[in-house]
Computed example of a mutant assay.
Amino acid sequence: MNSYEPEPRPRAVVFAYHNVGVRCLKVLLAGGVDVALVVTHEDSATENIWFESVVSLCQTEGIPYITPPDAKSAELLAQVKAADPEFIFSFYYRHMLPASLLEVAPAFNMHGSLLPEFRGRAPVNWAVLHGATETGATLHEMTVKPDAGAIVSQMVVPILPDDTAFEVFGKVTVAAEQALWRVLPSLLDGTAPRINNDLSKGGYFSGRKPEDGRIDWHLPAQQVYNLHRAVAPPYPGAFTDVNGVRYVIERARLGDRHGVLQNGKTDNVAARSLPLGLTVVDNCVFGVCGDGGIITILALTADGVAISAQQLQTRLAA
Rank of each mutant, 00 (worst) to 15 (best):
L139V: 12
G203R: 03
F91V: 00
V156S: 05
P158W: 14
G170T: 10
L160H: 07
G207Q: 10
R119F: 04
V174R: 00
L139D: 11
S100E: 14
K171L: 15
L184A: 12
G202F: 02
Y92H: 12
L129Q: 05
V104E: 03
Y204P: 13
V124R: 03
L160G: 04
P116Q: 02
W126G: 00
P146I: 11
L188Q: 04
V174D: 06
H130T: 06
V144Y: 12
K145G: 05
V124I: 12
V157Y: 06
N109K: 00
K201W: 01
P85V: 02
L180C: 02
L180M: 10
S113T: 04
V128E: 00
R182Q: 15
D189K: 15
R119Y: 01
P210F: 01
S153V: 08
H130C: 08
T135H: 05
H130A: 05
N125T: 11
F118S: 04
V183M: 02
K209I: 07
V172P: 10
E177T: 08
W181S: 15
L114W: 09
N125S: 13
L184D: 13
G170M: 09
N196A: 15
N125A: 09
P85T: 06
L187N: 12
Y204D: 10
A192I: 10
A175Y: 05
K209P: 00
S113L: 09
W181T: 15
